[in-house]
């Protein structure tokens, strides 16, 4: 986005990628370098969202508004899971998406096998408690690994204090995914990544294992540095 200058709107007929904004008493023109004009809205891809829109009557107004095309990963497939897509992208190295997807698929297969084995071994009355859906396991693992706080160094009087600060939902999700992947990468040479990742995910889903321990350790450190919490000013 760049500012074209202090041209009065009345002088020009405005093209679709140019919008007007005010700063003080002056009008500016904003040019966007998107192929869509500012009046375009984002598409709603999932079936549930579309049903919701139709029920609430919002769909009627959307009929008259131009809508952007969906991005290539956005799909209405019932097999699509947003968190799995995110996780796959974090597993990916050097843009090798096909490989990353393959690794995740293998991980899911491994989880499924382990859980099915467990399912058949447990007595009849406890079978309900075993989760067999790998996607559900992934969701549980990530939500159990998400930290609440983080330590950040703040320099006061020449001393660097570790200050506990709250983190955003996005950062927390990023840390959980990063920790799961790094702990899965730290393995014996003969064990394959999908296998190790499957174990890590199952451990984290059961609220135990290395990643959950790492999160708890971070919380412990935050608790130890509680006294410095008022040093934060950002």
């Amino acid at each position: 986005m760049t500012v074209l200058g202090v041209i009065r709107l009345s002088v020009l007929t405005v093209p679709r990628n140019v919008s007007l904004y005010r700063r003080g008493n002056e009008e500016f023109l904003h040019k966007t370098y998107s192929s869509y004009g500012p009046h375009y809205v984002k598409p709603h891809v999932t079936t549930e969202k579309r049903k919701e829109l139709i029920e609430s009557g919002e769909a009627e107004t959307l009929k008259l508004i131009p809508i952007k095309a969906a991005l290539n990963y956005e799909t209405c497939s019932v097999f699509h899971d947003e968190l799995t897509r995110k996780f796959t992208n974090h597993v990916m190295r050097c843009g090798k998406k096909a490989l990353a997807r393959e690794l995740i698929e293998k991980t899911f297969e491994k989880i499924k096998r382990i859980q099915l084995e467990k399912y058949h071994k447990t007595p009849e009355d406890q079978k309900e408690s075993i989760i067999k859906d790998p996607v559900k396991i992934l969701h549980d693992a990530i939500s159990n690994s998400k930290p609440l706080l983080e330590l950040t160094p703040v320099k006061r009087g020449g001393v660097r204090y570790q200050v506990p600060v709250p983190i955003t939902e996005n950062r927390s999700l990023f840390l959980a995914i990063k920790w799961l992947i790094t702990s899965a990468k730290d393995k014996d040479r003969k064990i394959h990544f999908p296998e190790k990742l499957a174990w890590e995910l199952l451990d984290a889903a059961a609220n135990q294992g290395r990643v959950v321990k790492r999160k708890v350790d971070l919380h412990r450190q935050c608790e130890a540095n509680k006294a410095f919490a008022h040093y934060r000013w950002s």
Binding site: L148, P164, H219, E223, K226, A229, H230, R232, W233
Partner: peptide, 26 residues
Amino acid sequence: NRQAENICLQELGLLLSCLKKHDFNQ
């Protein structure tokens, strides 16, 4: 302005003491 922005300190304290009390079980 910097000093005035020490916000959520009370909530943070409560959270940390609760976590410590329950042995960091969320």
